[in-house]
């Protein structure tokens, strides 16, 4: 069954950009151009995720989030905004949104975050051992092995690898890593995340072994078990 998402956005071009992108990924996309229609469709049920613009005509994006949550609907919600990230993010999350993305964004970033939101419940399955291909992480003994070889990781590298192992085959963007690992929401001007990943890769990939964490062009990284 294909997944259904609702996109509420008053700017026609942005709306088309988002819905075309998700349709190409095999989603069924419902759209609305104002908050009132958006709220109606959102409460109608059957949506797997909601993408709401922060500033909407007739009913503000934040108000839609609050109404949807008040109606007892737990569908994951991602807010889009043209406003500054720093405080708006906190405000959006407080209102009941699950994630937040600042305009302009790349489609890959939005897609990665929506995928992450829709699969979130899986994250709570508390397994003590995480695996991917020939990589095994034992959370209790805090040890990592690849093809029988024990890896020596710093606590931060361990944390990053765990983040990937809990999201196998999903694209992880750089901002998702900064928020998820360091719990910061600021804009680094340099490629600090890339540096951390390449450091981790040096430990992860022995000579002749295939690269486990792959770079996804203009999106981020992916840990894939396809080999």
């Amino acid at each position: 069954m294909s997944r259904r998402i609702l996109v509420v956005e008053d700017d026609a071009e942005t709306l088309e950009f988002i819905s075309k992108g998700f349709e190409a990924q095999g989603y069924v996309v419902e759209t609305a151009t104002n908050g009132r229609d958006g709220l109606y469709l959102a409460t109608d049920g059957g949506m797997d995720a909601l993408i709401l613009d922060r500033m909407l005509p007739e009913l503000d994006g934040l108000a839609v989030v609050q109404s949807v949550r008040a109606a007892g609907i737990n569908t994951p919600i991602l807010l889009l905004t043209a406003m500054s990230a720093v405080d708006e993010r906190v405000r959006g999350l407080r209102a009941g949104a699950d994630d937040y993305l600042v305009k302009p964004f790349s489609f890959q970033e939005l897609h990665a975050r929506i995928e992450a939101l829709m699969r979130r419940p899986q994250d709570h399955t508390e397994s003590r051992v995480l695996t991917c291909a020939d990589l095994t992480m034992d959370l209790e003994r805090r040890s990592v092995t690849r093809a029988g070889r024990t890896l020596v990781l710093t606590p931060r590298e361990f944390q990053i690898l765990e983040f990937f192992l809990r999201r196998v085959n999903r694209v992880i963007t750089r901002t998702m890593l900064l928020e998820g690992i360091w719990d910061y929401n600021f804009d680094p001007h340099t490629n600090i995340i890339d540096v951390h990943i390449s450091k981790l890769r040096r430990e992860l990939d022995g000579p002749g072994e295939p690269q486990l964490i792959k770079t996804v062009r203009s999106a981020g990284y992916i840990l894939s078990d396809a080999g």
Binding site: V86, V90, Y184, P188, I192, H196, K199
Partner: peptide, 24 residues
Amino acid sequence: DFETVDMNALVRDAVELYAPVGEE
């Protein structure tokens, strides 16, 4: 939007975040 901020933790995080950039 102000909150109690432990600057020691903030500096520790920042140093840890940027240390690999310097290490190169």
